[in-house]
Computed example of a mutant assay.
Amino acid sequence: MSQPFVYRTIELDGGHLRVAIRPGKADLPPLLVFNGIGANLELLFPFVRALDPDMEVIAFDVPGVGGSSLPSLPYRFSDLAKRVSRMLDYLDVGQVNVIGVSWGGALAQQFAHDFPQRCKKLILAATCAGMAMLPAKPKVLWRMASARRYIQPSYGARIAPDIYGGAFRHDPALAQAFASKVRSGGRRGYYLQLLAGLGWTSIHWLHRIHQPTLILAGDDDPIIPLPNMRLLARRIPNSQLHVIGDGHLFLVARAQTVAPIISSFLAQERQRARIHQA
C-alpha cells in the first residue's frame, strides 16, 4: 500500500515552497514531479498513487501556485531550476528521476540540462520545446492564456473537453473531479508562469540532454499537438516515445495505463541514488 504524503514548507530566496513527499525505499532514486501551469500538486495525486508504492515521490507547488508564496519578481526557467536544486539540498536528496508535465516539461528539460549530475532519468509528458513548437489552435491558446479555469472551477470543468481532449471529451464527471482539486494561487502567479516561458526554447540544446528519456504523448492533445513530441524524440539522443490513446491529461485519465510504462522505464537500472562528480 502506498505511503501517505508528508507535507513540508521550505524557506528559499525570501519565500516558501510547499512540498509533498510520498516516502519510498531508500535504494530507489526519488521521482521529482514538475507540474503543469497553474496546477497545484494535488492534481497529480491520482497518478502518483498508481505508481510503484516503493518509489519515493517529491512534488511541489511552483512559486505563486497552490500553497507556495508569490514571488516578488518574475523568474525564468533557469532561475526556477536553481531553486529546485537548492530545494533538493534542503531535503538532503542527491540524484532524482524527473517527470515534467506540460509547462513543467519545459522546466524538466531546463533542470536536466543545467543539473545533469542530479537528474538520472527524464520523463517528458505532454510538453514541447517552447517557442519552437507547433502551436495549438487559436481557441485553445486563448483559453490557456487566462487563469480563469483555475480561479473558477465550474468554468474549468466546462471547457475541459475542448482544451484537454481525450477522456475529458466524453466524461463530465472526470472534468468535475479534476476541477474540484484545484487550489488556485491567483492570476499573478499564473501570469508569472506564462512570463517564464516567454521566448524560451530548448531546441538548440536538446541534443545535449543525455539522460535516458521517456517521452509520453497523447494522440488527442489540443494543447500540445503530437508533432511536438515527435520533435523532442528526434532531438534528444537517448529517448523513446510512447503515444497514449488519450488527451493532454492522460496522466490523470489513464493513470493505470501510464504508470506501468513509467515504472518499467525507471526500473531498468535500480541502484542507490548518487551524484556523479565530473
Rank of each mutant, 00 (worst) to 15 (best):
V48L: 05
D221R: 14
F47P: 04
G197E: 02
N35R: 13
G104L: 12
N35Q: 14
L214T: 06
L232G: 08
A259V: 03
E11M: 10
L28P: 01
P138N: 11
I215K: 02
D171I: 09
L17R: 02
A179L: 09
Q3P: 04
R86M: 09
S154A: 15
D79K: 12
L174V: 03
G189H: 07
T257P: 01
P237S: 12
R18L: 10
G64S: 02
A267E: 06
L32G: 03
L251P: 02
A175F: 03
Y155H: 13
D13E: 12
Q193D: 11
L80H: 10
P74T: 12
Q256Y: 07
D162R: 12
D79A: 11
W205V: 07
G165V: 02
S72T: 10
P153F: 06
I261C: 06
K181Y: 01
Q271D: 10
R169N: 04
G64M: 01
I224C: 14
L266S: 06
R149F: 07
Q268M: 11
S263K: 13
G156T: 03
V182F: 07
P74V: 03
L43E: 12
G130A: 09
V243H: 03
S180V: 02
L195A: 14
L195N: 13
A126W: 01
I163M: 10
A175C: 04
I123C: 08
G130I: 08
R149E: 03
I223C: 12
I261D: 02
S72H: 13
A177H: 14
V243F: 04
A129H: 13
G15E: 09
R118F: 05
Y190W: 04
F111R: 00
G197C: 10
A112F: 03
H248L: 02
P153S: 08
L226G: 04
L12P: 00
D162Y: 11
R187N: 14
V93H: 01
R49W: 05
A278H: 14
I215N: 00
L107Y: 05
Y150G: 11
S264H: 13
R183A: 11
S263N: 15
M144N: 14
I37W: 06
Q95T: 06
S102F: 09
V62S: 12
Y164C: 13
I58M: 07
